[in-house]
């Protein structure tokens, strides 16, 4: 357990990831040192291959670092076994993916409820919370629609709702606007910022999208697996 201040949600120390591609070693991340405090809205930017997604995967416990450590709420995730990692993701982290990644056979509401169901939340509470969050993300009345009956923007809103419904410490979003048109993307950013403000949820978003970069509170620039800049932006919202 890392002795952290209560406000620190994520700590990465000397984090490196090296992939073996045939005979070549690819250094996806090199000695990343990085901290995220509660309620921050951070944008990881950089060109393709800069290591944004790899860093998000390390923080989310979806991938293991070659060296270095990741702490979530003071807990070193490298020391957790598969089951404990799953529990950590279930209770502390929400994910938003580039391709929405909703379960096609479930309705909008059921997609939102599935995480709560795994958490053991009662049926009534799940129902109540999912309807509330659908209202918050502006999709009230669409709870019985299947993903195929929703637009890309609506699907991504459902994905955001799924990520934040159980109030995780951290939401990781990997290129959430990449598949959306600019208007829809802008609305989604509004939504995430609104959730950040409203629930004090910490967001780490990887993106190429200048609009998100501009509006984030903190911008971390990556290049060739290294942090090259860490900028706090004041006039973002």
């Amino acid at each position: 357990m890392q002795n952290t201040d209560n406000q620190t949600v994520v700590i990465c120390t000397d984090l490196s990831k090296t992939y073996q591609q045939g005979l070549i070693q690819v250094h996806a991340l090199s000695n990343i040192n990085f901290e995220v405090n509660k309620g921050e809205f951070i944008c990881l930017s950089g060109p393709s291959g800069s290591g944004k997604s790899t860093l998000l995967n390390m923080i989310g416990g979806l991938d293991t670092p070659s060296s270095g450590k990741v702490y979530i709420d003071g807990e070193e995730i490298d020391k957790l076994n598969k089951s404990e990692l799953a529990d950590m993701r279930l209770h502390k982290i929400g994910f938003v993916f580039q391709a929405y990644n909703l379960i096609p056979v479930l309705t909008a509401q059921e997609n939102i409820e599935m995480v709560m169901q795994m958490q053991g939340v009662s049926k009534n509470e799940r129902h109540h919370k999912s309807l509330n969050i659908l209202q918050e993300v502006g999709l009230g009345g669409l709870e019985n629609r299947k993903p195929t009956e929703l637009s890309g923007g609506q699907q991504q809103r459902i994905a955001v709702a799924r990520a934040i419904v159980s109030r995780p410490s951290l939401v990781l979003a990997d290129e959430p606007t990449a598949n959306l048109d600019s208007l829809t993307a802008s609305k989604l950013i509004d939504l995430m910022l609104q959730m950040n403000e409203l629930h004090n949820t910490t967001f780490i978003i990887s993106t190429h999208d200048p609009m998100i970069m501009q509006r984030s509170k903190k911008l971390v620039k990556l290049h060739d697996g290294k942090i090259i800049d860490n900028i706090i932006q004041k006039n973002n919202v």
Binding site: G60, L62, K82, S83, A86, D87, M88, R89, L90, H91, I93, F95, F97, N101, I103, M114, V115, M118, Q119, R162
Partner: peptide, 8 residues
Amino acid sequence: IMLALGYK
């Protein structure tokens, strides 16, 4: 996706 969301 389900694994990422916390399913075992």
